[in-house]
Simulated assay, not measured.
Amino acid sequence: MLTRKQHELVCFINDRLTETGVSPSFEEMKEALELKSKSGVHRLISALEERQFIRRLPNRARALEVLRMPERAEKKRATSPSPVTRRQLGQLPQPANDVIEIPLHGRIAAGVPIEAFEGATTLAVPAALLGQGDHYALEVAGDSMVEAGILDGDYALVKRQDVARDGEIVVALIDDAEATLKYFRREGAMIRLDPANRAYDPQRYAPAQVRIQGKLSGILRRYN
């Protein structure tokens, strides 16, 4: 049995495919279901895939196929559109590009800090992995964040900001020279950067030594 939001989403996707032949964007689905973020859309799509109501077509952006409809929806569709379609009719936003190119700025340590360098390359990222704000990517080097699910070779997707709250995973620039990816914590008059690997010790610095370069907003992993 589907949840209400899952039911609304599969009906909305099916309606758009019927009307236009093109599946809706993540932004359109977020607005239609009145969700706060695209990550909620991603979770709903994954759940519908697991239940074999929809599938993503490989090597194509914005390509979803409805495999089957919920039983109740099939009985109702002959007489009325889905609640989502009625509410959003004439109010749908313009289609959004589901893949965003963001700057890729070299490598960042998830172990002992290493130099982070600027680069001219970009990384294509699904829009659902990014929220509001300006983002960039860094390639992860090292294994000190493995217990947080961050592995060597992953791409850290970082929202640019210069402040952080305790417990957030941040990109911290040490002495204006080296950058590292760690949990941020305040410890008395010091800044403590915690790894997520018991084989590594926390790093402690005076506040003047540490500049926050951004907060982790997602991880992108490629499989070769």
Score class of each variant (00 low, 15 high):
residue 195 P to R: 09
residue 161 Q to F: 10
residue 172 A to Q: 10
residue 158 V to C: 12
residue 159 K to D: 12
residue 151 L to P: 09
residue 164 A to D: 12
residue 184 F to L: 04
residue 169 I to E: 10
residue 151 L to D: 04
residue 216 L to I: 04
residue 193 L to E: 00
residue 182 K to F: 00
residue 207 P to I: 09
residue 198 R to F: 04
residue 156 A to G: 05
residue 155 Y to D: 00
residue 147 E to K: 08
residue 171 V to L: 13
residue 170 V to P: 15
residue 174 I to P: 13
residue 150 I to V: 05
residue 150 I to G: 05
residue 201 D to M: 01
residue 169 I to L: 07
residue 147 E to V: 02
residue 169 I to H: 15
residue 157 L to E: 14
residue 153 G to F: 03
residue 166 D to E: 14
residue 202 P to T: 01
residue 189 A to E: 07
residue 150 I to A: 09
residue 153 G to N: 07
residue 146 V to W: 04
residue 197 N to P: 09
residue 174 I to Q: 06
residue 200 Y to K: 02
residue 197 N to L: 01
residue 207 P to H: 11
residue 148 A to R: 14
residue 163 V to I: 06
residue 192 R to E: 12
residue 192 R to N: 14
residue 216 L to N: 14
residue 210 V to L: 10
residue 148 A to H: 12
residue 195 P to A: 07
residue 164 A to C: 03
residue 170 V to L: 07
residue 166 D to A: 11
residue 202 P to R: 14
residue 178 E to M: 13
residue 194 D to V: 03
residue 170 V to S: 10
residue 171 V to K: 08
residue 160 R to E: 15
residue 168 E to C: 04
residue 173 L to K: 05
residue 196 A to L: 04
residue 148 A to E: 05
residue 205 Y to C: 05
residue 178 E to H: 14
residue 157 L to P: 15
residue 214 G to R: 09
residue 182 K to L: 01
residue 156 A to C: 10
residue 146 V to L: 00
residue 146 V to G: 03
residue 169 I to N: 13
residue 157 L to F: 11
residue 168 E to Y: 11
residue 214 G to L: 07
residue 163 V to P: 05
residue 207 P to D: 01
residue 187 E to M: 02
